[in-house]
């Protein structure tokens, strides 16, 4: 990112190649809509170009990029007042996707988890994703979201509790 800040446009292509897939996965889980995640991926990298000077040297690039993606996703959901729907994959013939949990090879279980996750409030979903999927500490999440680390911890744990409740409910 520092190379891009000093005017090396090719550095942006390198950043895009390195981070686009991860950011897209984060966005897809945030908004539960692949087409919207595609648009938000574009918005995220446009924001990087437009606000390169807002990146503070010495900080890790990945959390900064995820902050932008999270801001874009939250704002878009707020504006659209979108009821997050369970993601329906049109391509039934595609091979099974890699999962974070072997138990998810059961399609019904997978749908239940997707549905439960989609019911989490946006702020809790974001903290759970950043903590569990991206592996960030609560201190890093707090810095990204401009909140205290206690608030980040509370949001994530409320998200985990809510997920457990939803998954414990009978289908």
């Amino acid at each position: 990112m520092e190379r891009f800040q000093t005017g090396d446009a090719r550095a942006l292509e390198t950043l895009f190649e390195r981070h686009a897939t991860g950011v897209h996965a984060f966005l897809t889980r945030m908004v539960n809509d692949r087409a919207l995640a595609d648009d938000l991926l574009q918005t995220t990298f446009l924001s990087v170009v437009r606000s390169a000077d807002r990146y503070q040297r010495g900080l890790k690039f990945s959390p900064w990029l995820l902050t932008i993606a999270g801001n874009a996703a939250r704002d878009t959901l707020r504006r659209k007042r979108m009821a997050v729907e369970v993601l329906h994959d049109d391509d039934e013939t595609s091979p099974p996707e890699p999962t974070v949990d072997p138990a998810l090879s059961d399609p019904l279980q997978r749908r239940r988890i997707e549905a439960a996750f989609a019911q989490l409030p946006t702020q809790q979903r974001e903290c759970v994703l950043l903590h569990k999927v991206e592996g960030l500490s609560f201190e890093e999440i707090a810095q990204m979201l401009d909140i205290t680390s206690t608030a980040a911890r509370i949001r994530a744990h409320r998200g985990y509790e809510r997920l457990r409740e939803l998954l414990d409910e009978k289908p």
């Binding site: 292509e13 995640a37 595609d38 991926l41 990087v48 890699p98 949990d101 988890i113 569990k132 999927v133």
Partner: peptide, 30 residues
């Protein structure tokens, strides 16, 4: 420590079309 709560499976990677669209957008912005 990360609580033992399952998350949805990793989504499919972005399509080549979506990547090309994003590339074109930021190239134009540059």
């Amino acid at each position: 420590m990360t609580p033992d709560v399952p998350l949805p499976p990793a989504p499919k990677p972005p399509s080549a079309e979506a990547l090309a669209k994003a590339r074109a957008a930021f190239a134009s912005e540059l």
